[in-house]
């Protein structure tokens, strides 16, 4: 088992290298030269060729691409993502707190999402085809088709303005979590609920369930056993949900003025602040790879066959 984990972690290294290289190169795909962006951002009135060359030399942008990449990679490993083109502040000092805020939001939402989808998934699988199952499914179908920002606006209008129960924006206390979390839960619970439900259903039709029942095991315990097996698929999906959510809070953060990654990135995109965008992509891609690995390890740990053989 530990060998498997080591092997699995070893596999991520080349992937991480490729991803970091892609992220780095992205910068150079831009139709606008980064140097010009910097100079623009610094408010330099006329950009001359000498000035460009000078700035390039100063920032080490005249060395070969591969050298630049190595420098950038080594710096990134120390959480040094350079300085913002616009404000000149080190990127990490902006990214770090933003990441933390987004993580808080994502953790609270994912706990709610998983809890809700497991409960609903199990109930609907047991009551397959009854009115409860049908209504939950149609509701989740409608809700997944709903644009998140629209839902957010409606909820904000109703609960924050009309009823004045909750704050419209910002991140001050517990109450300010309610609306953003609600929007994320409504948007994503439907997807995970469907996965749990179909996974439960496919297991409920297995022979072993019939045999357990035929041996007189109570339905509640049979359901627990089935849930445990159905969770094997779900755990994989869930662990990938966290990085996916990290990348999907953009809209919600924007509407509720949440000081997180999304808000930061949108501002960076609008002001062409490349180092921030680069750092954002790198951090999320790495998170994705790590959670992916974690998912595989958990999956292996839950599967007796994998547990024995490695």
């Amino acid at each position: 088992m530990s060998l498997y984990i080591l092997k699995r972690i070893g596999m991520t290294v080349p992937l991480l290298i490729v991803i970091s290289f892609l992220t780095f190169v992205l910068n150079h795909l831009s139709p606008m030269e980064p140097v010009k962006v910097i100079l623009h951002a610094q408010g330099v009135p006329t950009i001359t060729e000498e000035l460009i060359a000078e700035t390039k030399a100063k920032l080490g942008m005249d060395s070969p691409l591969l050298i630049q990449y190595m420098d950038w990679l080594i710096a990134s490993l120390h959480f040094d993502f350079g300085h913002s083109y616009v404000t000149g502040i080190p990127v990490w000092s902006m990214l770090g707190p933003a990441l933390l805020h987004t993580l808080k939001l994502v953790l609270v939402s994912s706990i709610c999402i998983f809890g809700l989808s497991i409960v609903l998934g199990v109930i609907c699988a047991i009551r397959e085809g009854r009115w409860l199952d049908l209504s939950v499914r149609s509701l989740s179908f409608l809700l997944t088709a709903m644009p998140a920002y629209w839902l957010a606006a409606l909820l904000a209008w109703y609960f924050a303005v009309k009823l004045d129960w909750l704050p419209t924006s910002g991140m001050s206390d517990g109450a300010s979590y309610v609306l953003p979390v609600a929007v994320l839960v409504i948007g994503y619970a439907g997807l995970y609920f469907r996965i749990i439900r179909s996974s439960m259903l496919s297991h409920l039709n297995e022979d072993y369930v019939l045999y357990e029942r035929a041996c007189g095991i109570p339905e509640s315990i049979v359901t627990l056993h089935v849930l445990r097996n159905a969770m094997q698929v779900a755990i994989t999906v869930f662990s990938l949900a966290i990085p996916t959510l990290l990348g999907s809070t953009v809209v919600v953060e924007n509407i509720f003025a949440w000081p997180g990654l999304g808000t930061m990135t949108i501002n960076a995109i609008l002001s062409r602040d490349f180092p921030i965008i680069q750092a954002y992509v790198l951090v999320l891609a790495v998170a994705f790879v790590l959670f992916n690995t974690l998912a595989d390890v958990i999956h292996a740990a839950m599967n007796p066959r994998m547990r024995r053989e490695h």
Binding site: E206, D207, A214, G216, I217, P304
Partner: peptide, 22 residues
């Protein structure tokens, strides 16, 4: 439930699929 397993026992068709895999 008290009858199942105790008074009436079932022997399933496919042993490989009749037991909880985990």
């Amino acid at each position: 439930r008290g009858y199942r397993g105790k008074r009436i026992c079932m022997i399933m068709q496919n042993g490989m699929r009749a037991f909880n895999p985990s």
